[in-house]
Design a binder for these strands. Structure first.
Lengths: 74, 74
DNA sequence: ACATCATGTCAAGTGTTCTTAACATCCACT
DNA sequence: AGTGGATGTTAAGAACACTTGACATGATGT
């Protein structure tokens, strides 16, 4: 299983809070594919810093509202 | 040559503001090599989201204090 | 029953991030 | 002059982010 990233996110909640935006539409807005959004939303890996900024910008919230980094790390 | 990233950062200033911390020491604290810190500090590429969080944590500032993403992107 | 849409999965490939190791320069110290 | 610390550079490769395309499922609508 590799290590499925330490970063968590609130993308799914933000999508629904923003007019039921679909994964495909979010992908289109930030310039990545649908599959990439799915993988990030599920925490399979964490996005690049640039993509993180772009996603936060789509929802018009600060980056910390979208992504959280837990205190403890193994 | 790829594209030297759109994200800018204030790592160098933060290092000096925190007791003249060296690149090697910062690298050690976030668990990456000295060369990686140099490359990021120079904007050769942007770090992963996880590393960005870790760096911000070392300096005890929010992520946006370390990394900036310009409004316009081509 | 059939079509469509949103979500999810898989595999193979491309590109970027990060590592290791070696070498070079500048500065401070002795 | 010689030593050592901090920074910078390069090159080869490993690890991870992201793409493309194809197929599967459940929900909704006709």
């Amino acid at each position: 299983m590799g290590k499925p990233t330490n970063v968590t996110n609130s993308i799914r909640a933000l999508r629904f809070a923003n007019g039921e935006m679909t994964q495909a539409e979010l992908g289109g807005r930030v310039g990545v594919t649908r599959q990439t959004i799915i993988a990030i939303e599920q925490g399979r890996y964490s996005p690049s810093l640039e993509m993180a900024f772009q996603i936060a910008r789509v929802f018009q919230v600060p980056l910390d509202d979208v992504f959280q980094y837990p205190d403890t790390e193994e």
